[in-house]
């Protein structure tokens, strides 16, 4: 729980430091969609990583994929 709060706090801090840039951008809605995508996925990932059963990491996925394509030896 504390970790989750900590992660959310840090990402909110990031958003606060970014405010001037967010405001000066003209295409606000588009920017916000992309921006929030990264922020939210960062937060969710961070919280998931703290749980006892973290999601399978991308390296394993990529290794499996590569082995599947080139045929593992």
């Amino acid at each position: 729980m504390i970790t989750a709060a900590f992660i959310i706090g840090i990402f909110i801090l990031i958003m606060i430091t970014d405010l001037p840039y967010l405001i000066s951008e003209k295409k606000k809605s588009r920017l916000l969609i992309i921006y929030l995508f990264f922020i939210l996925s960062g937060i969710i990932l961070g919280i998931l990583l703290d749980t006892t059963n973290p999601p399978e990491n991308p390296s394993t996925l990529i290794t499996n994929m590569v082995n599947f394509i080139i045929g593992s030896n």
Binding site: D18, L45, N57
Partner: peptide, 27 residues
């Protein structure tokens, strides 16, 4: 790609994401 004007707006969110990604990357 998204037709925005300044890369600085996205920078810290992308970095924040890549920090979490880097921790997720390997066991």
């Amino acid at each position: 790609l998204s037709g925005l004007s300044d890369y600085k707006a996205l920078l810290s969110s992308i970095t924040g994401f890549s920090v979490t990604l880097s921790i997720w990357l390997y066991d």
